[in-house]
Design a protein around this nucleic acid. Structure first.
Lengths: 118, 118
DNA sequence: ATCTCCTATTGACAATCATCGATATGTTGC
DNA sequence: GCAACATATCGATGATTGTCAATAGGAGAT
């Protein structure tokens, strides 16, 4: 369940780029970050992400019902969310438990120009 | 240059849904909001959006250079960003001047669970 | 070991999308 | 009116994507 890194994070958890409201992105940075937004850009994945984000942990078996998609399709979408670094999976026994990656979520917010909390 | 409304805003500028960190989205809400993230999910569009967001106003003629795409392609992408409500275009003379829609941008941040600024 | 259950992968297909050349629309200046 | 320019639309094409049936991989239980 390794996480590739389309939105690079430095070791101290800051983000690669300044908020878009402050500085335009280079083509390279845009190419790195866009997949994270694309991951949230599908209705099924956005709902899956919200289901996982709204509770501490979610089993995959709890996700198929709400989104009304087949098991392979849900697995496909969780993989895309995980590759984007937005969620992390933890296999315990037969189940995979998903939770959001709060650092990545904060990074996405910051790219959108969130005012830093003082 | 009318704006369709995939992410409904009420008259008082609040958002349709609670942050995903607080409550999961319904299928309907996810379907409404996903196009906004999809609009940011293309590298060219994300860079265009950042170029527009980083300055008060941007002429279309200033956008083709940085993203290295043809005029029809840039026009296509600005239309998608505008349909998502993320940018607004103002035609003055021969040029269209683009600026971000701060309300919509704040709404997107809020969906991602931004802490409300007190 | 075998059976059962949960998840991931493969293969295929229809649908959507990004891209650009050509063209249309509309505006400015002469 | 006419020429020049900025933007939008159309049509076509190659690439990507969302979906599911079928199958494989792995973990617990008996």
């Amino acid at each position: 369940m390794a996480i590739r890194n389309p939105l690079p994070l430095t070791s101290n958890d800051t983000v690669c780029c300044a908020p878009v409201t402050e500085q335009a992105l280079s083509s390279q940075d845009a190419a790195d970050i866009a997949p994270v937004f694309a991951a949230l850009g599908d209705p099924v994945r956005l709902q899956l992400f919200s289901l996982i984000a709204a509770s501490e942990e979610s089993c995959s078996c709890d996700l198929e019902g709400p989104v009304q998609r087949s098991q392979p399709t849900v697995s496909h979408h969780t993989k895309i969310l995980a590759d984007a670094g937005l969620i992390m999976g933890d296999k315990r026994g037969r189940w995979v438990w998903w939770r959001v990656n709060p650092v990545r979520l904060a990074a996405v917010r910051r790219v959108l120009g969130e005012v830093p909390t003082p």
